[in-house]
Simulated assay, not measured.
Amino acid sequence: MNDVLSVRTLNRTLLERQFLTERTGLGPAEVVERLVALQGQEPNWPYLGLWARVEGFRREQLAELLADGRVVRAASLRSTQHLFGGADFGRWRPLLQPVLDRTSRARYFAPATDGLDLDELAAAGRELLGGGTLSRQGLAGGLAARYPGRDGKLLAGAVQLRVPVLHGPDSSAWGGWGTRANTSLALAELRPGELSAGAAVLRYLAAFGPAGVKDFQSWSGLTRMRAVFEELRPRLRVHRDEQGTELFDLPDAALADPERPVPVRFLPAYDNLLLGHADRTRVLAEADRPRVMPGAARVLPTFLLDGFVAGTWAVGGPELLVRPFRPLPDAAAEEVAAEAGRLAAFLGTGPRVVLEPAS
């Protein structure tokens, strides 16, 4: 009979595997690889994700990894921008290409791509990028010239999905809180050694398990993965959650003590912890989900109390605004304020911490 895992067991196990019960002494490059990738749609957030996980992390450490290619930024999981280990990206990108191809056919791109052969568009993009580094605006301009009357920006977006394109380190430099208006692009050199679907599942479970088939599909964007899990079943440990859903895990992976005390943690927008599963109740109560994921594909920065999302935060000019969902007991409020102060110090802009009334 399969073990039934409580929400708290799943919570504490996920926190441990995500280096959130205590900060790790591993280097940032190894942490990125252990977590598979860090969501990097906007430049500042991966720095904060590493700050929450790595003891003594400094912004310069990630900047150096990006500058020398040990960490790269590109479209990948769920067709969104992620930071991958440089060698790891080449293994994951071919596996994820069907997801990216599917996105390139989305209605968003149709005004520019309708009637075009998308393979020919990809070839045109490769040719433009073949000379070395090209700005995003340069790629859009070159494609608009080849396809008169069509939106070059949309064409460039479709090319970046169908062709393995790396975004230059400038796209991930610490700075503003929005996406870069322009950045440098270069073709990625994919070496042999594509990751199999089964190997990808094992990597995922090491960082996010125990988890179900739908969890992996939600995290990766890949579909029809049941057969892969079934093939792996003899090599995996199988549990169930309290709703009866099958959860798979590595056979030698430890489960955490559900009563283990955990510290307050402040997480960036789009953090792995919130996007690693279809069922997010192991870290986020369903009633609070609209407050964290208010629509338009946004996932707000959050803070954890006792391992669960207890509120959001934002930088508002000179202030770091902390917004709990419910009134905090005095001791918890002190712990939240103390960790918020450490976050403010990391941000380096000297924001004053404001703990707002519960909303």
Rank of each mutant, 00 (worst) to 15 (best):
S171E: 14
R191S: 09
A156T: 04
A197D: 11
A144N: 08
W177H: 10
G209R: 04
S135Q: 09
S171R: 15
L190C: 13
Y204T: 07
R136S: 08
W219M: 12
L187M: 04
A206C: 08
T179K: 15
A197R: 12
G130F: 06
A186Y: 14
W177F: 11
N182H: 12
L139N: 08
A124Y: 02
Q217R: 08
S196N: 09
A145L: 07
G157M: 08
L129K: 07
L128I: 05
S184P: 10
P164R: 00
A186F: 01
W174A: 06
N182Y: 04
Q217T: 02
L143R: 07
E194V: 09
A197W: 03
A200V: 00
R191P: 01
F216M: 07
A158W: 13
G193M: 12
G132P: 02
F208I: 12
E189M: 01
L202E: 02
W174R: 05
F216A: 05
G193E: 02
G178E: 15
G130D: 00
S172K: 08
G178D: 14
E194T: 10
W219T: 04
P210I: 03
Y204W: 06
S135I: 09
A211I: 01
G157I: 08
Q160H: 07
P164E: 10
V165Q: 14
L202T: 12
N182R: 11
P148Q: 02
T183C: 14
T133W: 15
A173C: 12
F208V: 08
A207S: 09
R150L: 12
A181S: 14
A199C: 04
P164A: 07
L154C: 05
L187W: 09
R136T: 09
A207L: 11
G149N: 03
G178V: 15
A188T: 13
A186S: 13
L205W: 00
A123K: 12
A186P: 14
R146G: 06
G152D: 07
G157S: 08
V213P: 05
